[in-house]
């Protein structure tokens, strides 16, 4: 009799433990899927509302302190996965070294994608680069123009896939 009670308790304990383990493993699986989508997106930003440049229309200008940077991307409309020419003109600063552009997505970490710029005239620079396609379907990209010793200016724009 005592042995039966003990066996019953053990079975109930075992069943409870299994339920807990199953619930825990389900939470782990769900956690991985949810966390993965959050982690991949990087810092939360309302990407769509931050667009400050309509790159499809022409030249965009942004200022940061005394520094004013104009950016033109060709050919237009600006499409992902094609060779693009980035033309930059700078006023309010005379950098000792040519500036460069960091391309990325505000909503997704895409890896270092840098466009080296070469001088084409006084305060004007040019370089080629590619905006890659994100399988998530997000289309908002940024071009961060970094002017050594003078600061940086960020252009946020949409591309066409």
């Amino acid at each position: 009799m005592k042995q039966n009670i003990s066996t019953g308790r053990r079975q109930r304990y075992f069943a409870k433990t299994q339920v807990l383990k199953i619930a825990l493993s389900f939470l782990i699986l769900l956690g991985i899927l949810v966390l993965s989508s959050v982690v991949a997106r990087g810092p939360a930003m309302a990407a769509d509302t931050m667009i400050n440049c309509d790159a499809h229309k022409g030249v965009c200008s942004q200022s940061s302190g005394a520094l004013t940077v104009s950016l033109e991307i060709t050919p237009r409309p600006v499409k992902a996965m094609q060779d693009l020419v980035f033309k930059v003109s700078i006023t309010g600063a005379s950098p000792a070294e040519p500036p460069h552009i960091d391309l990325g997505m505000p909503a997704m970490k895409m890896g270092p994608n840098q466009v080296a710029l070469k001088p084409t005239g006084p305060g004007t620079y040019e370089g080629t680069g590619v905006v890659v396609r994100c399988p998530s379907g997000k289309r908002t990209w940024f071009a961060n123009v970094i002017v050594p010793g003078s600061g940086e200016v960020k252009f946020i724009f949409d591309v066409i896939y």
Binding site: I32, L35, S36, V39, G42, K109
Partner: peptide
Amino acid sequence: MGFGHCIGMCG
């Protein structure tokens, strides 16, 4: 950098 993105896309 790739850590988060890999987990997100291939996880």
